[in-house]
Design a protein around this nucleic acid. Structure first.
Length: 735
DNA sequence: TCTCGTACGTTTTTT
DNA sequence: ACGTACGAGA
């Protein structure tokens, strides 16, 4: 490992700073990951046992990538390193220490949907209406409290009517989770704190174990994460954090930008390193980013610079509609690919909300451009997947009444009423539903009493549980899952349904099974518990394969930490970016601006930005104004174009009263329609015309062959001689 | 309890 | 545009 050669001076200094608190403020594209991985490798080379290090990242993907890189640098030594997201690392620790805080080690992890269901159930039980406030509102308020580390017992002196509902629900919610032997995402961070507070010896154990702590994306840590880090680092004080306050975009989830702003005062004798050289972007992209972010007041002072070339001007385009936006992007992709010798995978299309992806997908699909979409409806949140997982969850954790409720409701003839009855019966004998049903099964054994249909169904479920409880230890997770899926006949059921959606669902279940097989094969001694935990904590971005040759679509949030040669930032409209609900408070506006900054700084070579004058929102046309962020930048430095209609206008007039915009929205225009519209420049390309090509310059057309997509021209260029050009890709201009 | 129709609200962003 | 949640009727 040659630190001097691989790193710049500041990076190297940051890497070599071994002891004490260390804050690395790393501007976008400044080699943050590089520094972090080298630092860990350097620690290992300096003789520090990887077993004594804890590295915390924001996504599993970041953790896996870093692990790989460290392995390359430090070899097998790196194996015992603890590296992962806060959530996964502390889930692991909590399983080990579960008994100290009243849980079993096989606790279930509840996602947001699960939490909301629990909240809804409690609200009904306590006699609150679920119309106003909605369970969802109450749940997210509770999450907010938990993020701020306000426990139920701290939340008693409440004043307003809303909080008077929240307080008892919150209280009961936490108790319910303990009863179900379950933790939600926030508990995975709060419970370590309770564990450490209540058990100083346990805290000491981990303080002694983790002698070196490194935290990535420190600007996005919340109160609980901050407390954990502080507790663990107390004593040795060997804590390195890496982050960029300008890229803090998770305030809504409880992230406190203050954590990074006050790090220096939190930890005495902090060494601060600022990575200010950007290796990613062109000068023109970086200067735009700078222009945007300087409108924010609160930030750590730093000046980003780059030695990269000036590059092409950033492009800003006004399009008429969301559809035009898609068509425009298609056009750009098809011209950039030959121009820059790029592949589909070199492009990313960013948007503020997932809902915006749809129109863009349409444009890509009609033009046969391969794409992958990150985020949106998550695989493990799908109904059919949750249904199967519910069985596995109950087998692992028989106290999980939420999963059990789900199972029961799937059975024929069992509905709300029956579940209510069963729940109450279980409550009376202080048992979980699964425990109760198993006990009933035992009792009924050998009895000849005639069962009602409902009883029979209940006993069938109990029978399945009993059967698999008995054999589960001898089965691998994949064998068990396969067998359970067969038993409940969900694949057959979905196939018989025969609709397109049901077939999709069937494939999803099959995909789940292969996922479990893969997990079983890749992890020695794989357990069902392990798989379920992984499932709860992976996200789309973790599974995202950058090597697949396809255009990527994702939200700006998901793009953090990634880079692409060509970036499209779409929907730069007031109300969308910045999002309207964020336009009230100064703090939130600054966060939106940081998000815009993140989007800009993903780009390496070329950045395209677009806004549409109108787009479909909530099923009807809404007229949009360009983003206020655009007014904050000097558009004369950009290539600013107001485009004319791209897509065919027909079939539906959407002109509205009082609007000066007459616009007919096209519908169902086929691929050829769009292409010929987009590439209408091509129409005039014929023998003898003089044309201009972005790469080759001026030339004269010698011959034209083929038609449609395959239309080619033989052109004699002044500079490079004769070339055969596929017009579809070339974007020639007539002179 | 289920099934079908309709009305309604949804769109932030994610571990 | 879409999914879901709820009510009426079976």
């Amino acid at each position: 490992m040659d630190l001097v050669k691989e790193l710049n001076d500041e990076q190297r200094r940051a890497v070599e700073q071994i002891e004490g608190p260390c804050m690395i403020v790393a501007g976008a594209g400044s080699g943050k990951t590089r520094v972090l991985t080298y630092k860990i490798a350097f620690l290992i080379e300096s003789g520090i046992n990887p077993y004594e290090m804890l590295a915390l990242t924001f996504t599993n993907k970041a953790a896996n990538e870093m692990k790989q890189r460290i392995r390359k640098l430090a070899g097998a030594n790196a194996e015992n390193l603890w590296m992962g997201t806060f959530h996964s690392v502390f889930a692991k620790i909590l399983r080990i220490e579960a008994q100290h805080i009243g849980f079993d080690r096989n606790f279930t992890i509840y996602d947001d949907d699960d939490s909301e269901k629990v909240v809804e159930g409690i609200m009904k039980e306590l006699g609150f209406s679920t119309d106003n406030p909605k369970p969802r509102t109450v749940n997210s308020y509770i999450k907010g409290l938990k993020n701020k580390l306000i426990l139920p017992e701290d939340f008693v002196t409440v004043s307003n009517p809303f909080e008077k509902i929240v307080a008892p629900v919150y209280r009961e919610y936490q108790q319910r989770l303990i009863r179900n032997n379950a933790m939600d995402f926030d508990d995975l961070l709060i419970n370590p704190i309770l564990l450490f507070r209540g058990n100083p010896d346990v805290l000491q154990k981990y303080q002694n174990r983790f002698k070196f702590i490194l935290v990535d994306e420190y600007q996005d840590t919340n109160r609980a994460q901050y407390e954990i880090v502080k507790m663990l680092a107390t004593g040795h004080g060997n804590i390195s954090v890496v982050g960029d306050d300008a890229q803090s975009i998770y305030r809504w989830r409880g992230a406190e930008i203050e954590n990074i702003l006050k790090f220096e005062t939190d930890f005495t004798d902090t060494k601060v390193f600022k990575l200010e050289q950007n290796y990613r972007s062109t000068k023109s992209i970086l200067s735009l980013a700078d222009e945007v972010i300087k409108n924010n007041k609160r930030q750590i002072k730093k000046t980003l610079f780059t030695e990269n070339e000036e590059g092409e001007q950033v492009s800003l385009t006004e399009v008429l509609s969301d559809r035009d936006e898609g068509a425009m992007i298609v056009k750009w992709i098809l011209t950039e690919i030959p121009n820059r010798k790029l592949n589909f995978k070199d492009f990313v299309i960013l948007y503020r909300t997932n809902a915006q992806s749809r129109v863009i997908e349409d444009a890509l699909r009609t033009n046969s451009i391969p794409y992958i979409i990150v985020g949106g409806v998550k695989f493990y949140q799908r109904k059919e997947i949750k249904d199967v997982l519910a069985y596995l969850k109950v087998l692992v954790n028989p106290k999980d009444d939420e999963a059990m409720t789900r199972i029961l409701k799937l059975r024929d003839g069992i509905g709300e009423q029956t579940v209510e009855k069963i729940k109450n019966m279980a409550k009376e004998i202080a048992k979980s539903i699964a425990e109760l049903l198993l006990a009933m099964l035992e009792e009924n054994e050998g009895s000849t009493k005639k069962q009602s249909k409902i009883e029979a169904e209940l006993m069938r479920v109990a029978g399945i549980l009993k059967k698999y409880n008995e054999v589960k230890d001898g089965f691998s997770p994949s064998e068990l899952a396969r067998s359970v899926v067969d038993e409940i006949g969900i694949l057959r059921e979905l196939r018989n349904e025969g609709t397109d959606e049901s077939m999709d669902r069937m494939y999803n279940v099959q995909e789940l099974l292969s996922g479990i097989s893969e997990y079983t094969d890749n992890n020695e001694g794989a357990t069902l518990e392990g798989f379920l935990q992984e499932v709860s904590l992976v996200t789309d971005i973790d599974k995202y394969d950058e090597n697949k040759n396809a255009v990527t679509l994702m939200t700006t949030h998901s793009s953090k930490g990634l880079e692409y040669p060509v970036v499209f930032i779409t929907g730069l409209e007031d109300g969308i970016f910045p999002l309207s609900s964020s336009m009230l408070e100064q703090e939130e506006m600054e966060e939106e601006r940081r998000l815009f900054y993140v989007a800009i700084t993903r780009a390496m070579q070329k950045l395209y930005m677009t806004y549409a004058l109108q787009r479909y929102r909530f099923g009807s046309v809404s007229y949009q104004m360009k983003s206020r962020f655009i007014n904050e930048i000097d558009t004369s430095k950009l290539k600013y174009v107001k485009s004319t209609a791209m897509t065919r206008h027909r079939s539906r007039s959407v002109q509205e009263e009082g609007s000066s915009i007459k616009y007919e929205y096209y519908k169902d225009a086929g691929k050829d329609d769009v292409l010929s519209e987009i590439f209408r420049e091509d129409v005039g390309v014929k023998k003898g015309s003089v044309v201009f090509h972005n790469n080759f310059g001026m030339g004269k057309v010698i011959d034209v062959t083929g038609r449609g997509d395959a239309k080619k021209a033989q052109i004699h260029f002044e500079k490079v001689g004769i070339k055969n050009i596929i017009l579809k890709y070339a974007n020639l201009t007539l002179k």
